[in-house]
Design a protein around this nucleic acid. Sequence first.
DNA 1: CTGAAAGCGCTTACAG
DNA 2: CTGAAAGCGCTTACAG
Lengths: 344, 344
Amino acid sequence: MAREAGVSIKTVSRVLNREAGVHEHTRAQVLAVVERLKYRPKLSARSLAGARSFLIGLLYYDPSAAFVGAAQKGAVVRCREAGYHLVVESIEDHAPDIDAQVDRMVSALRPDGMILTPPLCDNPRVLKALTERGTPVVLISPGEHDAGLMTVRMDDVGAAEEVTRLLIRLGHERIAFIRGPADQAASALRQHGFERAMKAQGLPIDPALVCPGDFTFASGARAARDLLALRERPTAVFASNDDMALGVMAEALRLGLGVPADLSIAGFDDSPGAALVYPPLTTVRQPLEEMARLAVDLLITPGEQEPESADRVMAHRLVVRGSTATRSRGATRAQGAANAMPQP
Amino acid sequence: MAREAGVSIKTVSRVLNREAGVHEHTRAQVLAVVERLKYRPKLSARSLAGARSFLIGLLYYDPSAAFVGAAQKGAVVRCREAGYHLVVESIEDHAPDIDAQVDRMVSALRPDGMILTPPLCDNPRVLKALTERGTPVVLISPGEHDAGLMTVRMDDVGAAEEVTRLLIRLGHERIAFIRGPADQAASALRQHGFERAMKAQGLPIDPALVCPGDFTFASGARAARDLLALRERPTAVFASNDDMALGVMAEALRLGLGVPADLSIAGFDDSPGAALVYPPLTTVRQPLEEMARLAVDLLITPGEQEPESADRVMAHRLVVRGSTATRSRGATRAQGAANAMPQP
DNA sequence: CTGAAAGCGCTTACAG
DNA sequence: CTGAAAGCGCTTACAG
């Protein structure tokens, strides 16, 4: 106890919790002793006695690893600053007892709030389990921002439009689009942005150039295989996430096509790999770190004066790199290139 | 309280903690009520009263993101299974007050153990701060396994030898090696493995072919720029991690060289990006998930009968992919290729 | 501005 | 095999 060393009793608590109404002299004295004794209040005791646990949970479903990594980075830093700790939990999106799993976790841990990443933020059972226990929740990039839940997201539609407009500006007209999985909210939003930009520029949307995908490298490669086998090939591909874009690139290079000479490729996310391939990938930088940072803020906001709901939209950024270029003359008709030798 | 519903009092505690000496009948009854009331003991109360916090900390320094991601995956899963929770904390390896930061974190959280990843596991100040507080620690792939600390690692030397032998077997003789940063233990180990394999096969180690690097993409690209400008170029490059290998690949492709036709490239780690590039990267799969899983096990082992020290070596695997191939005839002398057109 | 009491919800010895 | 008591180390009202 810092009490003996100091002079006061649980004024220490007041000082450490930065409560108002402590004499400056006393405060300084207490702080000095705390420093000398390296006294740190125990989280479990504070948590048990008080209303807060100083724990924030980050709930994710693994596959979207790069996405989670970036979000975690932002959340961890903000938690540190605020004297909180970040607890990470992974959970299978399709587990039959997913609500029980969530409930078990939350009721034992009693975090002051939970941050949900896609696709969990669109899972009604997870949401229900959480709200039933009264746990504050922030959804990152959810599909629908309903139920008065707090959400933080970016403008997927607008960003997809920007990517598409970039390709059009580079002279591309036959632009393929690779979709994300149907159960992920971002998929529809990004496709919408693509279509809107195409229509706005008066370009037709060829159904043969809109391929299914599931945000994996393999699905991108598969889509590329189909697209590049078409009689009239696209000159540009907009994959709605980076992993798929990398799949397209790998497949194109494997077939001996030049990127971006014969095919421009754009992705979405600015995942770690995007800058590590050759040519580096044109993509959209999701402000994931900032989003997670804000999510923590919304959860630990001292007063409860914060409206139980909020919908913050963070700024994204188009990152133009080497995988996109102006359409080369007659590229559309250069069917033979697929069989060309990769080396002279 | 499940007490009213059941019949007993804090026998509930015994049942929930799986202590021996409870009548089968009572146990079943308690369990039933627990299930019905969805009763979950509060972590903070258990932690305050008992000796365990059910919290495991994962301490990392960000840059090694892929490494951390894999380790975290394994740790999170094992924690769940065991009813523990994983708290993640990032910390700057070169912060002047790093020990104070660690101390602050640990003394508030009181985790039952901490898992340290490189390079933190080789930071004496971090180690000292932790052991002073009496926090059990497991080091993942540390440089020196001293001080009776528990360690989990792989055979870096052996794995690097395997990679080198693979390249030699493919007919390569002029093999370049790109080192990791000096303060990271794995750097020296991997270089040692490379040199040992070269010597074992009676191949000379040309100092001009051993380049500095710091485990980043940029340093790999830089090394490649130097290597490919040599009069007598290497026909294969062994970069001691994947990020650098990807840098080498990007630079080689940029110069119009064929990979693996003109240059074979191998990495180390099997990071997420390794399989997403074209050609996919030959590398070594670090058993990070299993290592982290075991680290958690060592930390939560119920009895204290576990020796305070342990040094477990996990099996790795050489992953041969498309970036390595047999040396093409006369590749060493094909200096002109760098200026060749990438496309016919 | 500061202190004494009660209590958060469990586990740890200790009795029966 | 099971219970009653004490206490873990803080915070929350409540007095002064």
